[in-house]
């Protein structure tokens, strides 16, 4: 179904879940034929060469209210990382810090350090628009523009001046979001006529159309029925080879199904959100180190 991003949309009838055919897209600046997975590109940090985000003692307050604190986490390239935990523990807050979506909240204040590929995300010369161009986001509630399906996807590429082969770009994005077959005959129809699940996949297509580096997903399936949820999860599986994905979910099965690593957030003794445990997903769900994590995943909490 999804053809390789680099070969322009060839095999429309390929079976779903053909993950092996997807290769991360190539950065032309680094030369042809190189595979991004094997390339030592992304991180200047000494530890693992693949760290996209690094939070050090990250803490967020809204006015006098401290929302989260003590967050230390490394998010790795081309992996899906899940944030789980009871509601109100700051998952959305942390996620929205990653592309500076919180900046528009007047009371928002951030402490600690947040690095993106080694750059200080909240540094003095950081341009927010540039940050969001590189780090896309899909929201809990589908929010397509009241425009046609085509224009929804083409809107951001047009802004960015990606004018050549716009039709091909839109098609590839819709294929990547597993929506192409459903909408290819009505690209000019209003996006608001789509079902909730289709709208959410359109929002994902809209985000991947400008080829960001990272995709942030805030409970993307929470408003959807099980079938639409399954197709979104499927999609995340296929996208994570190409993008770094961070997904917030309160559904543990979902985390188990899609995520390589899982971060468990909860409220600490002062009722402030914090990161309790972060590890490979199998480890979190089979041998959690912290009793609070164990209580949560066995359903004794939340």
């Amino acid at each position: 179904m999804t053809s390789s991003w680099t070969s322009s949309g060839s095999s429309p009838n390929a079976a779903e879940g053909q993950r092996a055919t997807i290769r991360p897209r190539l950065r032309l600046s680094t030369g042809v034929g190189a595979d991004a997975l094997t390339e030592p590109t992304c991180s200047p940090t000494p530890t693992g060469a693949q760290v996209v985000f690094r939070a050090e003692q990250l803490a967020v307050s809204y006015g006098a209210k401290r929302a989260v604190e003590d967050i230390n986490i490394d998010i790795h390239r081309n992996e899906a990382t899940a944030f789980i935990g009871p509601s109100g523990c700051g998952k959305t807050t942390v996620l929205r810090c990653l592309n500076r979506m919180n900046d528009s909240i007047p009371t928002f204040a951030l402490d600690g350090k947040l690095l993106y590929h080694g750059h200080d995300l909240y540094g003095p010369h950081v341009n927010r628009v540039e940050v969001r161009r590189r780090i896309g986001m899909v929201f809990q509630k589908p929010n397509p523009f009241p425009k046609s399906i085509f224009d929804n996807v083409a809107w951001a590429p047009r802004n960015l001046g990606m004018k050549d082969d716009l039709g091909g770009r839109v098609e590839r994005a819709l294929r990547a979001a597993a929506l192409w077959d459903e909408v290819k005959d009505r690209l000019r129809a209003s996006a608001l006529g789509l079902s909730g699940g289709q709208q959410q996949r359109l929002c994902i297509a809209r985000a991947v159309a400008i080829e960001p580096d990272v995709l942030l997903l805030d409970e993307p399936a929470s408003a959807l029925d099980p079938i639409a949820t399954a197709s979104i999860e499927d999609l995340i599986h296929r996208l994570k080879d190409r993008y770094t994905i961070v997904i917030v979910t309160h559904n543990m099965q979902q985390a188990m199904r899609v995520a390589d690593r899982t971060a468990f957030f909860s409220l600490d003794e002062h009722r402030v959100g914090t990161l309790i445990e972060y590890d490979r997903t199998e480890t979190i769900f089979s041998r959690p180190a912290d009793p609070r994590t164990r209580d949560y995943i066995t359903g004794r909490f939340g």
Binding site: N99, V129, R132, R133, G136, F145, W155, R206, A207
Partner: peptide, 14 residues
């Protein structure tokens, strides 16, 4: 709705 504006902002729009 602010979601619509945020949706546009999250796509790297000025």
């Amino acid at each position: 709705p602010s979601e619509l504006r945020e949706g546009a902002e999250a796509l790297g729009a000025t």
